[in-house]
Design a protein around this nucleic acid. Structure first.
Lengths: 277, 277
DNA sequence: CCTTTGCTGTATATGGCGTACACGTAGTAG
DNA sequence: CTACTACGTGTACGCCATATACAGCAAAGG
C-alpha cells in the first residue's frame, strides 16, 4: 500500500468508501484503534494489538491502511468529529472561543491520546478542517489582522494540548507503575531533604501553595483568553487608524469618509471574503 | 543497577561522584547522550548508539546508569545548568519573567530535545530546582497567592515547551524525509482543492495570513504575559482587602491598622518565609 | 606470596515493535 | 474456464531496552 501522503488524503476524505462487507475494513480498523488507544494510550497502540483485537493477523491491516502513522491520522479525524461545533450566540468572541476550548478539552478527556499525536505533517481530514474553520470563525470580526487570528487559534490549540499532555502522561505512569502520582511524589523524601535551601520554594511549600493548587486548565485558559482580550482591545482602539488587513498605519485625510485599507490590494483581499459563500 | 527512583536522586545530586579514571564514567555517558540527542533528537538516542559513540558495548552503560529514562533525566539536569539565572534588576516581575522565558527558549534552541522529555515523574536535579526557584522568585512579591505563583510558572513553562515541541518536530520530520516543511505542505494540492468551501479559512488564506505569519513564540509569550499581568493588577487592587496567603476577603474594622491575613495560621505561614535565609 | 572479593565490561538471549516480501486463496470479470 | 484482483497469512529483518550469566582485573586480606 502506497505511503504517499496523498493516499491518506483520499482515505480521510472518503474517496475509498466501501460498502460494509464481512471481513476487515478501514472503518473497523480505525474503530479498534480508537478503542485500544482510549484504553492504553498511543504508545499502547500497536498494529499487532489492533489486529489481535479484530481477530486477524498483523499484516492483514496493511491491506487497508498504509501504516501505523496513517492509522493514527484516521483515528484522529474520526474522533475530532465528536466535538460539537456550536457555541453561544451571545457574548462575543470570548464566549465562543472559550466554549470551543472547553469542548476540545472535554474531547481530550474522552480520548486522551489525542494530545499525544505529535508531528507537524498530519493531513487534516474533514472533521479537523471543520473544527479549525469554526475556531477561526470565533475570532473573525474582532479587528484582529489575519495573521493574528491564525496565531490566536494556534495558541489556544497548543495550550489545550499542552495541558492534556500532562494529564495523559500522569495516567500513563499510574497505569504502568500501579502507583498514584501523589503517592509517588510523596515517597521522594530523599529529594525533599535537599530543598530547604531554596527560599521561595520553601515559602510556597509552607504557605500551602502545593496543597490547594490552582486547576491548571482553568487557570491557564483564563490567562490566555485575558491576554488575547488585551490584544483585541488594543486593535479595536486603533481600528480606524490602521489597515484592516495588514495593519499599517493609514495616512491621509482623517476627515470625510475614513479609509479602511492601506492599498487597493488589501481592499481586494478583504472583499474576496464575501465572494466565497 | 537499581531502578529505584531514589537511585537517580543520588546520581543527580552528585552523591556518587567518582574521580576521573580511564574507561567509562557517568559523566562521559551523559555527555555522549547529550551530543547524540542534540544531533538526532530524543528518539534517536538509543543505548546502542551512545555505547557505540564511546566505543563500548551496549550493556556496559548499565554499570553506570540504571536505564535509558534515568540517563535522560541526567542529561536534562546537566543541560539545564547552562541557563543563566540572572535577570534585569529593574522593570519588575514582567521583565524578569520574560527574560527567564527567553533564556529557556534559547536553551531549547540549543538542545531541542529538552522539550521532548515528557512525563511527570522526573526527579529534578540541582540545576532544575535552581531554575524553578528562580522562576518562582520572579513572581514573588507580586501580590499573587502562593498557588497562583506556582500556576503562573507552570503555565509559562508549559507554553515554552509546547512551542519548542513544534520546532523540534518540524526539524525531525525534515531530517527524516529530506523534504522541507514548506515544500511538503506545498505539495498537498489534493488537500487544498477541498478547502474552498470553508469561508473563514479561505478568507485568511486570500488575505495573506499564512504568507506572513506571526512569530509563534513571540506572539504567544506576549499574550501569556499580558494575561498574567491582568491577574496581577487585579490582585494588586484588592491587596488590602484580602488575605495575602489564601485570598479570602478580610472582614472587620477597615480603619486603623489594616489586617493582612485572615487568620493566625496564614500570618505564620507568611512569616516563615523570612525565617529561611 | 596467594587468594578472595567486588567492580567493570562483554556475550547472549528475550520479547516487543513496524513492516517488507513471498505466498495462497477466493471471488469476479472476460 | 481462465485470468486477474483483492484479501489475508507466514516468515523474516532490523531496530529497541534490558535480564542474565560470565570473564578479567585490581585492591584487600591473609
Amino acid at each position: 500500500m502506497t505511503r504517499d501522503p496523498d493516499r491518506v488524503v483520499e482515505l480521510l476524505w472518503h474517496e475509498g468508501g466501501r460498502e460494509p462487507r464481512p471481513g476487515l475494513s478501514l472503518a473497523r480498523i480505525v474503530c479498534a484503534g480508537i478503542e485500544l488507544a482510549d484504553a492504553e494510550g498511543l504508545e499502547g497502540l500497536s498494529m499487532r494489538k489492533v489486529a489481535d483485537r479484530l481477530g486477524f493477523t498483523t499484516m492483514s491491516l496493511y491491506r487497508h491502511v498504509p501504516g501505523r502513522d496513517q492509522l493514527v491520522d484516521l483515528m484522529r479525524d474520526a474522533v475530532l468529529g465528536e466535538q460539537p461545533l456550536t457555541g453561544p450566540q451571545e457574548g462575543g468572541w470570548r464566549a465562543r472561543l472559550e466554549a470551543c476550548a472547553r469542548a476540545a478539552w472535554d474531547l481530550r478527556r474522552r480520548h486522551p491520546w489525542l494530545a499525544e499525536v505529535r508531528g507537524t505533517r498530519h493531513v487534516p481530514g474533514p472533521n479537523a478542517v471543520a473544527l479549525y474553520e469554526y475556531m477561526l470563525s470565533t475570532v473573525a470580526g474582532t479587528g484582529l489582522r489575519p495573521a493574528e487570528m491564525i496565531a490566536v487559534v494556534g495558541l489556544v490549540g497548543r495550550f489545550i494540548d499542552a495541558e492534556a499532555l500532562v494529564l495523559v502522561e500522569t495516567s500513563r505512569e499510574e497505569r504502568h507503575s500501579g502507583v498514584s502520582e501523589e503517592e509517588w511524589w510523596g515517597a521522594r523524601d530523599s529529594l525533599y531533604e535537599r530543598l530547604d535551601r531554596y527560599p521561595t520554594l520553601s515559602y510556597l511549600w509552607e504557605a500551602g501553595g502545593y496543597d490547594q493548587p490552582e486547576d491548571s486548565f482553568e487557570f491557564g485558559l483564563r490567562r490566555v483568553l485575558d491576554g488575547i482580550e488585551v490584544l483585541i482591545k488594543e486593535r479595536d482602539e486603533k481600528r480606524d487608524e490602521t489597515c484592516r488587513v495588514c495593519g499599517t498605519v493609514l495616512e491621509g485625510a482623517p476627515s470625510g469618509r475614513p479609509r479602511r485599507y492601506c492599498s487597493r490590494a488589501c481592499q481586494q483581499r478583504a472583499y474576496r471574503k464575501r465572494a466565497t459563500p
